[in-house]
């Protein structure tokens, strides 16, 4: 049995569902400053230990876990991850805020020095829909990827941080998706924003590849929307909420109901983290991968502010 400590009680429900698929993985401890929340989460997950902070947990129970699942408040994620590494723990870190790109890079170096696994979660790579797109691209069925088109619209209070959403943070998983699908980083980044809750980002990859991503955090309360299309030289794939919604007739105009993709992504992420840590290999989403996505987000922010194209020069954008 591989045991982890979970930082952030808010992720407990999703983990409880994901763990049903992973009989060899457990959550042994829950860390959260809110006593009520962590107590409920610990009961939900069958965790025997609780602590208000990660230093507190690891000071007294360092041997309770081989790794730490870091899902707490965005501002504290890098601190918690660094604390875990100091105790020799593997780290599954939810994608940190774009502003933490430099600290994420430093964390990666820290993990390498400590010989622990760092995997970044909260990307789109383990969503079943995106897995299918990636597999079909990798199989060669769609030919050479020419275009990625993605739309992602959140409700106004539905940012990944749970607070006022920042479009850089909302866009980062899609920028990682673009890097992953193209297996590269963009050469050119051009972005236009409207207020703090809407952006469209235009990416140019080598050999003519291109991506257009728009992210909005301005929908009225309710479901969000996601559409991802990949256009290859011999085929295309469309993963589109528009296609996948059911219609509910209950008077007036029908409502569209999204069956969703469940917690398959988290289960996949956790399984990969456990496997990578056990094998002593790099995880499928490394700190460097996430850092690259956050770099593109930063380049997009600079472009949106200046109206200029950000051009890649080796490992940075100008």
């Amino acid at each position: 049995m591989t045991c982890y400590a979970l930082v952030g009680a808010g992720a407990a429900d999703r983990y409880a569902d994901a763990l049903l698929r992973l009989p060899d993985v457990c959550v042994a401890a829950v860390v959260d400053p809110d006593a009520g929340g962590r107590g409920a989460a610990a009961r939900r997950l069958g965790a025997g230990l609780q602590a208000a902070s990660l230093p507190e947990l690891l000071a007294g129970h360092s041997d309770c876990c081989s790794g730490v699942l870091v899902h707490g408040a965005a501002a504290a994620r890098l601190d918690d991850a660094a604390e875990a590494v100091r105790h020799g723990k593997h780290v599954l870190l939810e994608l940190p805020p774009a502003a933490d790109a430099a600290r994420l890079q430093a964390l990666g170096e820290q993990c390498a020095a400590a010989d622990v696994c760092l995997m970044v979660g909260g990307t789109l790579r383990f969503l079943p829909s995106q897995q299918v797109l990636k597999q079909r691209l990798d199989s060669g069925k769609l030919g050479e990827l020419g275009l990625l088109r993605a739309h992602r619209w959140h409700a106004a209070a539905g940012g990944v941080t749970g607070s006022v959403p920042d479009w850089q943070d909302l866009a980062a998983p899609y920028l990682d998706l673009a890097n992953w699908l193209f297996d590269d980083r963009p050469e050119r980044v051009y972005a236009r924003a409207a207020g703090s809750d809407y952006v469209q980002i235009h990416l140019g990859f080598r050999a003519g590849g291109m991506a257009l991503i728009d992210v909005s955090a301005g929908l009225p309360p309710g479901d969000g929307y996601q559409s991802v299309s990949v256009i290859g030289s011999t085929g295309a794939g469309y993963a589109d909420d528009h296609h996948n919604r059911a219609l509910l007739f209950a008077g007036g105009n029908p409502a569209a109901r999204d069956p969703g993709e469940g917690n398959h992504d988290l289960a996949g992420e956790l399984a990969e983290f456990a496997a990578a840590a056990a094998a002593g290999r790099a995880a499928q989403v490394t700190g460097a991968d996430a850092h690259a996505a956050l770099q593109v987000a930063a380049a997009a922010a600079a472009s949106a502010a200046s109206g200029d194209v950000a051009v890649r020069r080796e490992d940075r954008y100008e």
Partner: peptide, 20 residues
């Protein structure tokens, strides 16, 4: 035979086009 265009309208509305 494939193109993506970011559009900035005079009205301030943003837009984009993917065509191929």
């Amino acid at each position: 035979d494939l193109a993506t265009v970011t559009l900035e309208m005079e009205s301030g509305v943003l837009g984009s086009l993917c065509i191929g």
